[in-house]
C-alpha cells in the first residue's frame, strides 16, 4: 500500500512541477541579489538574506526562510487535500476500497507519502540552493584543491564549521518536516470530510492564514502558543549559539498534538464514511 502510494507520488508530473516551483523562488531571489548586490536591511526581508552576499554556504537556510511561510505549506495543503477527496472526486476511492485495503492503512499510507513529498521537496530546495549559493555568492578552495564553503557566522557571531552547518541544516529539515505534518493533518482531515480536493486545500489554507494573522495580534496573545503556525520559524534558532531549543521543542510538540488530533478525526470520520461516488 505504501509502495503504491509512493509510486503514485513519483509518477505524477505535478510532484516535480511543485518541487521545481519551490526551487525556482530561491533561484530567482539569488540571481537578483547576486546581480544587484542589494541585501535587505537588517531585520527585514527573509532571514539570512543580508548575510548570504558574503557567504553562499548559508543560502540553503535563506532558501528555507523564503519557501516556508507560503510556498511549502500551500504545496502540502494542495497535495494533502487531494489525498482522499481527489480519489473520491475521480471515482477511484470506491475501487480502491473494494480491494482488501483497510481504511486506516490507506490513511497512514497517504500521510507517509506526504512526508516523503515534503522530504523530497525540501531536499531539492536545499541541494539547488546550496549549489546556487556557492555558485553566485562564493566558495573557497582548500590546499587539497577541494572546493569548500567558507565558515558560516551564526546569528550569535561565532563561527559555524561546515560540519556544524550540515548538522544544523539536517535539524532544520527535520523540524520543517514536522511543521508541515500539522498542515498535512489539517488538509487530510478536511479531505475526508469533502469530496472536493480544492475545498480541502482551501480549508487548510484558511486555517493557516487565520493562524498567521492571530500570531501577529497582541490581543490574541493568550492563544498564540497553541496556533499551528506560531513556531514555524523556530528552525532559525538552530543557527544561534548555543542552539535555542525552547521554541523548537514547543513547535514540534504543538505539531504532534495537531497531528494526533486531526489524524484521529480523519480516522474516525473516514472509517465510517459512505463512499458514494
Amino acid at each position: 500500500m505504501i509502495r503504491v502510494e509512493l509510486a503514485k507520488l513519483f509518477r505524477r508530473p505535478r510532484t516535480y512541477v511543485i518541487a521545481g516551483l519551490l526551487c525556482g523562488l530561491p533561484l530567482i531571489v539569488a540571481i537578483f541579489l547576486a546581480t544587484t548586490k542589494i541585501p535587505p536591511p537588517p531585520g527585514q526581508g527573509g532571514a539570512f538574506l543580508s548575510a548570504v552576499l558574503s557567504n553562499g554556504a548559508l543560502y540553503p537556510a535563506a532558501a528555507m526562510a523564503l519557501v516556508l511561510p507560503v510556498f511549502l505549506p500551500v504545496s502540502v495543503a494542495v497535495l494533502a487535500g487531494d489525498t482522499v477527496a481527489g480519489e473520491a472526486a475521480t471515482g477511484t476511492l470506491r475501487y480502491l476500497l473494494i480491494r482488501p485495503v483497510g481504511r486506516t492503512r490507506l490513511l497512514v499510507a497517504k500521510l507517509l507519502s506526504l512526508i516523503v513529498f515534503v522530504l523530497f521537496a525540501i531536499g531539492a530546495v536545499l541541494v539547488t540552493s546550496y549549489i546556487t549559493g556557492l555558485a553566485l555568492f562564493g566558495a573557497t578552495t582548500s590546499s587539497a584543491g577541494v572546493t569548500l564553503p567558507p565558515d558560516v557566522t551564526s546569528l550569535s557571531g561565532v563561527t559555524i564549521s561546515p560540519a556544524g552547518l550540515v548538522l544544523r541544516l539536517l535539524g532544520t529539515v527535520a523540524y520543517i518536516v514536522v511543521s508541515m505534518l500539522g498542515v498535512a493533518a489539517i488538509a487530510l482531515f478536511l479531505s475526508t470530510v469533502t469530496d472536493s480536493a480544492l475545498g480541502a486545500a482551501m480549508g487548510a489554507l484558511a486555517v493557516l492564514v487565520t493562524s498567521q494573522v492571530l500570531v501577529t495580534l497582541d490581543a490574541a496573545a493568550a492563544i498564540r502558543p497553541y496556533l499551528p503556525t506560531r513556531y514555524w520559524l523556530a528552525w532559525i534558532d538552530f543557527f544561534r549559539e548555543p542552539v535555542l531549543w525552547r521554541d523548537i521543542e514547543r513547535g514540534a510538540g504543538i505539531q504532534l498534538v495537531y497531528l494526533v488530533v486531526l489524524l484521529g478525526a480523519a480516522w474516525a470520520n473516514f472509517l465510517t464514511k459512505d463512499v458514494a461516488n
Binding site: G43, G46, A47, L155, S156, G157, L233
Partner: peptide, 10 residues
C-alpha cells in the same frame, strides 16, 4: 541576547 526573527543583538 535580544532575539528577533532572523536577527540577534547581544
Amino acid at each position: 541576547d535580544v532575539l528577533g526573527p532572523g536577527t540577534e543583538n547581544d
